[in-house]
Each structure stands twice: as C-alpha cells, then as structure tokens.
C-alpha cells in the first residue's frame, strides 16, 4: 500500500519533466527563419543619376558578373561598376579602349569582362585591360558580345558584320546583305542555336547554316533590336517600328501588341524575370510588363527615372535595373 502511494506521487512528476524535455527538443529542432527580406522593403523604386552617384545619366547597357558586381555602359563616360556599395568609374584613363557608346558588356567563363565600344573592344581581367581593334577600320562599333556554350566569343557590330573567336583571335563573318551586317543583338538559346537580330531580319545559326527570318515569315519588322528566350522556350523579338513584338514558338511567329500608347514599337531590351513576367523596354514610353495574360505600362509616375529605356537587367537578388537614355538608372525591388 505504501509502495503504491509512492508510485502515484513520483510518476506524474517524471512525466512532467519528460514532457518538458520533449517540448524543448521539439522547439530546438524547428527550422528558424533566417535571411529573409523584410516585405516592407519591397515594391520600391530607387533612382541613381548624376545628382547622386553617377558620372553619366545616359546609360546604354548593363550586365552582372559572377561576383555580383553590376557593370553599366555609358554613352560617353566609360563604364560604371557597382559592387553593392560603391560606384566606380572605368575610363580610357585607366586603359578602357574608348569612353563612347559602351553598348555591350559580357563576362566570359574565365571571369573576364568584355566591353564593346564605338571604337573597339576591351577585355578586363580584374586588374588590366586588353584592347581589341578592327584591322581594317578605325570605327569598330560594337553592338553586342556573347560567349556561347563552347566558349566562342560572338561580337556583333554596326555594319562590319560578325566576329567569332576567342581571346587570341577573331574571324570576321559578313553576309551578302549589308543590312544583315548591322547586328543589334546576339542570343544563344537553350538548344545552342545562336540568334542574331539585325537590320535585315533575324538570323538563326544552328551550328551549320545561318537561317534567315524576315517579315515574310511573320516578323513585325526586319529591324530587330532585342531577343530573349522565355521559360517556355519561346523566342521573343523586339523591333524598331513594328506594330507588335513577336513570340516565336519554334514554328511560327505570333504577334503580341504592347499597350504603350504608340502605334509602333521600339523595343531596345526584353527580359523575363524570375516570376515569369516579361519586361519590354519601350523606346519612347517606359516599360511594359506582360504577365502572360495582361500588360501594364510603367512610367515616371510609377517610379521609373525616364521614358526612354535602353536596357533592362534582373540581378541575382531579383532586383530589376532600368537604364535610361537621359535620366540615369532606376532600380525596382519587386514584391
């Protein structure tokens, strides 16, 4: 009887301690919420211009390197680098080939940054510049630089055609139509095809041949300024003067009208963000965002620095950068 009473007193105490211990283990085992962005900091716009940090308000190109640095090409003030804290300026004074019209920026697989200017090309290895010039002309006006999956560097020019090579030598390739030698944009798709947007339509290089696509195939205009491949695998084309942008599904071109307030479109840049929205940089009317169903246009009232946008980039943090022709840079931090 006495033993029985002892058991009834001790057992509950043991259970209580055991339960508290189990609860402590449960709490300790739970996943904590570290490194999450405060939602109050989202859906915000920031503007960078000569009034605060920039040396130029005219920005033509943008790229992010593998270290997270952002590189901006200016119209006449060289290159601007932003490492997340400090804005630095790289000009002819420290070795850049030329300060004018930095329209192409590309990082290669070795971490070198390539810059295309109106008068040549520079490769920057982090400490010094190696400059490239055309052998037959002083005007080596570069529009775009892309490294393909094989490591070849593709250089597009305004009027001199295409240069393909590596850091040691380049081979020039021209086409039988001078408009095709005006290459605005070079993009490699997921299948390894290289797409060239020219003033004479689109050229698709499948590894063997250059296959042309023009308005006869359904392009809205032959003056192709921008190309991307979206997450569905479709290729989008932005043109100068077309009534539409084009979506190419591998078989045919489909017209998509941008609601930009203008009859004709001038689309200098297209990106798809990580949410699947497609952003079109309108030459005259800000930016149009297409979520797959609806579109809306973003302008100065929304926070964009200017209406004429030359380039768009989504960085590795998911922030979207807009380079304007005369009003500096806008950064949008999406929700």
């Amino acid at each position: 009887m006495v033993r029985s009473q002892n058991i009834t007193i001790k057992t509950p105490g043991f259970i209580f301690i055991a339960v508290l211990f189990i609860l402590f283990v449960f709490i300790s085992a739970c996943e904590e919420s570290y490194n999450a962005v405060d939602p109050k900091t989202l859906d915000k716009w920031e503007t960078y211009n000569t009034n605060n940090v920039l040396v130029s308000d005219s920005i033509l190109s943008v790229a992010e390197d593998s270290k997270g640095n952002l590189w901006f090409g200016t119209r006449s003030n060289g290159v601007i680098k932003y490492d997340g804290k400090i804005w630095s300026n790289y000009t002819e004074n420290i070795g850049l080939v030329n300060n004018n019209y930095i329209q192409a920026i590309e990082e290669d697989r070795f971490g070198n940054i390539w810059f295309g200017t109106a008068y040549g090309m520079s490769k920057y290895n982090g400490s010094e510049f190696l400059n490239y010039f055309a052998s037959d002309t002083s005007l080596f006006d570069i529009s775009d630089i892309t490294e393909d999956r094989l490591g070849n560097i593709w250089v597009g020019t305004y009027g001199l055609g295409l240069y393909i090579g590596d850091e040691n030598s380049f081979e020039r390739r021209t086409f039988n139509d001078s408009l095709l030698d005006v290459i605005n944009v070079i993009v490699e798709d997921l299948e390894g095809n290289i797409w060239l947007g020219t003033y004479g339509g689109v050229l698709k290089f499948n590894g063997i041949n250059f296959i042309p696509y023009t308005t006869n195939n359904g392009l809205a205009s032959n003056e192709v300024l921008s190309i991307i491949q979206d997450s569905y695998g479709d290729i989008w084309f932005g043109t100068f003067g077309g009534k539409y942008v084009n979506r190419f599904d591998g078989t045919s071109f489909h017209n998509v009208a941008l609601y930009s307030g203008f009859i004709y479109t001038v689309v200098y840049s297209i990106i798809e963000d990580r949410s699947g929205n497609i952003w079109f940089a309108n030459g005259f009317n800000g930016v149009t965002v297409y979520d797959g169903v609806t579109m809306h246009t973003i302008g100065k009232n929304d926070g964009l620095a200017g209406y004429m946008i030359n380039a768009i980039l989504e960085d590795s943090k998911g922030d979207i950068w807009f380079c304007s022709n005369n009003n500096g840079i806008s950064k949008y931090i999406p929700r």
């Binding site: 904590e32 919420s33 999450a36 962005v37 939602p39 989202l42 963000d273 990580r274």
Partner: peptide
C-alpha cells in the same frame, strides 16, 4: 511572426 516564402525566388519574410 517569422516564416518566409520564395515565391519570386527571393526569400521574403512573411508579414
């Protein structure tokens, strides 16, 4: 409080 989602690829804290 706490918690997050990565709906847009960015880890955003729950409100």
């Amino acid at each position: 409080y706490g918690g997050w989602s990565e709906l847009t690829g960015k880890r955003v804290a729950n409100e």
